[in-house]
Design a protein around this nucleic acid. Sequence first.
DNA 1: GTCAGTACACTGGTCTGACCAGTAGCCTGC
DNA 2: GCAGGCTACTGGTCAGACCAGTGTACTGAC
Lengths: 248, 248
Amino acid sequence: MRFEPVAPVRAYERVVEQIEQAVVSGALKPGERLPSERELMTQFGVGRSTVREALRVLQAAEMIRSRPGDPRGPEVLAASPVALHRSMHRLARADHVGLAELLQFRMILDGSAHLLAAELRTADDLAGLDTALEAMREGVSHGYAEFSRADVAFHEVIARISRNPLLVVSEEVVRGVVLELIEDKLEHASNRTSLMRAWLSHHAEVLDAIRSADGTGAAHLAKQALYDNYAEHVPAGQRPLLTPLLRS
Amino acid sequence: MRFEPVAPVRAYERVVEQIEQAVVSGALKPGERLPSERELMTQFGVGRSTVREALRVLQAAEMIRSRPGDPRGPEVLAASPVALHRSMHRLARADHVGLAELLQFRMILDGSAHLLAAELRTADDLAGLDTALEAMREGVSHGYAEFSRADVAFHEVIARISRNPLLVVSEEVVRGVVLELIEDKLEHASNRTSLMRAWLSHHAEVLDAIRSADGTGAAHLAKQALYDNYAEHVPAGQRPLLTPLLRS
DNA sequence: GTCAGTACACTGGTCTGACCAGTAGCCTGC
DNA sequence: GCAGGCTACTGGTCAGACCAGTGTACTGAC
């Protein structure tokens, strides 16, 4: 006979448990309201601070939101990828993850997103990509910031076409962290205009591949472009980590 | 001139911000201790309840842990995938993310991990895979639970060989969530022994491909195996989301 | 009748102060 | 030298208070 180690269960944890249960079971639907803190404290039989700590935990998990003064009480939120985004971002900024690993991961995600996009795109999707590309073309003359915004938008459309929220969120997070790590280096790039033109023609190529439903080609273009643009910032010794991905 | 909308910033949020900043910047390393709540409250110039709500938020994010009675104060934790797992699990239980998306994501991650493993494996890695496979072989006769544990270990070795923490963690999380979603279906499988044998021979094939540095082959085997094993639990209408991944 | 303006009851955010059970380390007394 | 208790702390919880802000219901003027 074996015994399990027991951990003390805090009062606020049991409150969290009950409310969370009510939400995931569907008893409380998004948009509905929780009772006020003072009401909850009598229902649960605990002090207000305990209730508040429980609500803080749920709020950190993006399950509820409370606004001061609202007599209807805290609002139950729909499941959103914001919490996933936060936790992944934290993990990606931890020290064991360097630019090489991030870039590797981004090549994987971006490549797959392009592959799926080429196979699953509809006529509407293609139109969306066309306008995104057009915005980039205009952005070239409106400065780097504008161009960069249009570039991000293009990538987001691609990710969206893949129709996988996990892919969308992960790609977005990794892209953001990569940019955070090398933004200072990009700031000082001297030949920005030629960089933008190169990027633009690359995106046009990608769009062609997607239009002709060439998934493998689009994926390869995407990975190659990432390598070409960012590998210079990766220590030379770690670049062999990236090249295998170009061969698939 | 445009103005940004402002949101009221709560006191506990600013406390969270400062502590989080100290952790991600490395000023506070894992294992180190925060001052006690009463000390923090004088340092931040806020009440104890505010400090406590901030600590709750950080604790929910798995950044710190506090134990009552410990005079050394709350402990700073190493970045861990637990929070990522929780948020992905929550998202997966919401309607936006179904088994199809999870499986799609897992095929991407697993495929890439196998590709990298085949290209980067050392002699030591191969030996590790050999022992893992041997454990699986023995597990067949020791019941499903034992076999499953060995199977997980094999996958973890593969992921580790790819030497990318993000890949390791994401793969682990997605695998866990997928298993949680279909565990009840697996419980009732009648022909477990033949399933285990099929799995075993598949892993042997994968190991061969990795040994001969055939990255593309290993990746394809991995993705095909996932599809073969799990696609039956995906609604038929969503299976076309998975097949494009088999073609790369 | 409509509608602006106000009063009110209530919300969440914060602080203070208190008590408890539990811990770690010191400090006895042997 | 060491077992045992003492003590000064810790975090967990509660009670009560105040404040700024909100939504609503009521009031008044038109």
